[in-house]
Nucleic acid binder design. Structure first.
Lengths: 336, 336
DNA sequence: CGCTATACTGAAAACGTTATCACTAATTAT
DNA sequence: ATAATTAGTGATAACGTTTTCAGTATAGCG
């Protein structure tokens, strides 16, 4: 491996000039040519460690997700990474295994590695530790977000799309619509419920508490919880004629229950799911499903982070809502 | 941020002694205590860049996968990462988008970042560039492997498990068994076909060329290709009574075709798939499916890499085969 | 008790960059 | 033509570690 000094010698300039060339600072054209030629000849690559040591910038971004083998999180990170790479950043992704304690450790680890910023999908509804461990760091929170927020945040627009889904069910004659929600400490869970409530209100239907179920939707227990909750819901009076599962895992659990019990969709109950791609392709009949735009989610996260990285002064934090879409299948029965 | 010098001052020793403490080198107990106390008090963390600059070791491992939002690859990397972290390494994962040109770029980028080693899932059947770009680097190749191999390699044992599957089909009275294989330039594709051929031979059944289809199984086109090939297979004479799809995407494509055409499994054709977890839970009837052990795959990749990282001298490259398992569903019909 | 071997220690020189600063050459204004 | 500015240069000092090396205590030995 050759160094800036080797290049300088070959080009007949000082190391400082070589540094100026590789950092796009003004240099006499003649010197520029000689240096670039020397760089090519020696296959010189600036040493990242030395550079970071001097500049205090590693051009590395730390990402933490609850489960890195889960497409949902990784797709977000993939697209964020793409944008960040365009700006010269590299990315380190770590897995918190859905546990806050581990998440904290990973953030700490990334701090030791001197990352320049973070994109985090929280494991639990708490990010207070960030200010202790990584105070002053550029941070973007993504998807799972605690309610009082002091950071830049990107979430999918749940209110709107759930509103539309409920509206559609109503127009198909459904009055008793059950919904399986996430814990209301999460912003996204709140939003999705808000869409449900608002639609019913707008159409002057009463809201039946018994048809609104709150479920711990963490990736570890979400499926199981939704499974049980679906049973509960279908035993309520009035029995719901339609169900909305407001999350990937909740969708999975709910459908598994109905499959196990042989409950026919849409004959016995209509259904709208969330984010379950593979299933959408294969389930018979095709499920109606809400899909979040992970590509945009990641891109926005990257944008917000870059904004922080590039601005020197304090900027007020921003919350970005990314549109979701509802794809229709044959899982909604027309009543009457 | 405090430095080794601040710590030294507070502890009343030289920076060298502090360095010795944080690197577990022998130090007088009294000094050890004073230094650790000072470290705690100042919340000192050794600067990674400075350390790397001096030691030429970053403790970073580069990983490259074709698609980082694909659970298959990420699960491998997740478990590899776990093992590597235990040994103090951090991991940078990059996405080659299934294109060799990009893969090369990512490897180059990771070289610039001075990673200490690589775990790579190749996009195409060629890793010759590695010797140009990253010659001498510790490298482990994973899952998709070109045939003549000069690196450490981890693959799933396809021969054995496909053999078992074919055997099972034979015992259920099937003689005409179709198989959708990957391109024979891939080691894994070869192995899976080998299992098929050997089982038929062992049971003295003729091998019918028309029932063995070779398909480009890359993540971009695999599904589509399998879709078309399934049609072909089912139009062959003799018509196969059972089908084996030897890969996740091939399974997906094949099942999609049969679903679209309303071909009933197992009534019209028996089926054994590969790696399609979500589907296994939901498809009706339950598919018989081969599952690879990604956890072990990743763990072995990490083990091989650590072996290279820790050994100073040249070691001969190793090829590790990880057992797969066959999970039975109701997709195999008993003939006669 | 003196001698050698042992076990730590601190000073100082790296590692490969970038940033500062004083300086020179080239340009412009007068 | 000379003075005043501008543009670009190289020497040098960081950045925060580790490593070498010579040195100093301490322990072990006869």
């Amino acid at each position: 491996m050759s160094t800036i000094i080797d290049v300088a010698k070959l080009a007949g300039t000082s190391p400082a000039t070589v540094s100026r060339v590789i950092n796009n600072k003004p240099v006499r054209p003649e010197n520029y040519d000689r240096v670039t030629a020397a760089i090519k000849e020696l296959r010189f690559e600036a040493n990242a460690s030395a550079r970071s040591l001097k500049t205090k910038k590693t051009w590395n971004i730390g990402m933490v997700v609850p489960f890195m083998d889960f497409f949902y999180f990784m797709r977000i990170m993939k697209y964020a990474q793409q944008r960040l790479e365009e700006q010269g950043y590299s990315v380190m992704i770590m897995d918190s295994e859905g546990e806050q304690e581990l998440e904290k450790e990973k953030v700490k680890k990334l701090m030791e590695l001197n990352v320049d910023g973070f994109i985090i999908v929280l494991s639990e509804n708490d990010c207070s530790y960030i200010n202790e461990i990584a105070s002053g760091m550029p941070v973007v929170l993504c998807d799972k977000v605690p309610n009082p927020i002091h950071h830049d945040v990107v979430v999918c627009d749940g209110a709107n799309i759930v509103y539309k889904s409920v509206e559609l069910l109503i127009k198909n004659g459904h009055e008793n619509i059950g919904i399986i929600c996430g814990p209301q400490v999460y912003y996204t869970a709140q939003e999705r419920l808000k869409g449900y409530l608002r639609a019913l209100e707008d159409y002057h239907y009463p809201i039946k508490e018994s048809l609104v179920k709150y479920v711990a939707w963490d990736t570890k227990h979400g499926v199981r919880n939704a499974y049980d909750t679906t049973r509960e819901l279908l035993n309520e009076t009035p029995r719901p004629t339609a169900l909305i599962a407001s999350n990937y895992d909740l969708t999975k659990g709910s459908l598994l229950y109905m499959q196990d019990e042989g409950i026919k969709i849409p004959e016995e109950v209509s259904f709208v799911g969330y984010d379950f791609e593979e299933l959408y392709e294969f389930y018979n009949p095709k499920m109606s499903m809400i899909f979040e735009d992970f590509e945009e989610l990641g891109a926005q996260a990257a944008r917000l982070l870059l904004r922080q990285l590039q601005s020197s002064g304090n900027i007020s934090s921003e919350i970005v809502r990314v549109k979701s879409r509802l794809v229709l299948g044959d899982s909604i029965k027309k009543l009457k």
